[in-house]
């Protein structure tokens, strides 16, 4: 599916540009994006190196296990396939916590590390149930403090920049619950299909 989306975006864009006379913009966009992608990767590399280093210490010191033990009842329900005391759980929880506090920079490295642990668990190149759940949680991003948005609102002179926090929390809870339900629905649909 991702192959199709990827190819279609580019093909439709190029064909549309041919009729719309925007081929020059398309050319510019391509080369500008190459630079952008490298820049993003480099800045992501810094963040990844730092947080994965720090989290390794947290793992060795038993902090991640502690975090996982604290939220065990919830996480066990959301991720029933991960064995108890597996390091993936600690990273998933750090990822969720970082997301909640709007620390996107810290959330990504921990999410990626969690994904890697999940891959070690399955050993195949197919997305497992837990991986899809982790993704669903991240795409709906359970945010308690939307730091970036508050900064933008402040910049343009809002009388109360944080007034949107309540509404954002409500919306994020709805979308996260929806993500978990939709994820469950697709999981059970996959299972039914396998049984048939």
């Amino acid at each position: 599916m991702v192959n199709l989306i990827w190819a279609l975006l580019a093909i439709v864009g190029i064909v549309y540009a041919a009729f719309n006379g925007t081929m020059k913009e398309v050319n510019q966009a391509i080369f500008q994006t190459l630079d952008e992608a490298v820049m993003i990767t480099i800045s992501l590399a810094g963040v990844l190196v730092f947080w994965l280093g720090l989290m390794k210490i947290a793992e060795e010191a038993g902090l991640l296990r502690g975090l996982a033990a604290l939220f065990k009842p919830v996480v066990k329900r959301i991720f029933p396939d991960i064995p108890e005391n597996h390091p993936a759980l600690g990273y998933i929880l750090s990822n969720m916590t970082a997301n909640m506090f709007g620390l996107g920079n810290a959330a990504t490295p921990m999410g990626l590390k969690a994904m890697k642990e999940l891959k070690n668990l399955s050993g195949s190149d197919h997305a497992t149930r837990s991986m899809i759940t982790l993704l669903a949680l991240n795409t709906s991003s359970l945010t308690l403090i939307p730091t970036t948005v508050i900064a933008v609102r402040m910049k343009y002179g809002s009388s109360d920049p944080t007034s949107i926090i309540g509404a954002t929390i409500l919306a994020t809870i709805v979308s996260t619950c929806a993500a978990l339900c939709i994820d469950r629905y697709f999981y059970h649909r996959r299972k039914r299909r396998l049984e048939l």
């Binding site: 599916m1 997305a127 669903a136 709906s140 996959r190």
Partner: peptide, 26 residues
Amino acid sequence: TVYFGAVGIKRMGDALKVGLLADLVG
């Protein structure tokens, strides 16, 4: 892209559908 790319998952299963549907609800 980033999460599956980083660990080399080729078969994404229902991940994209789940993510986009959740976005719509959000």
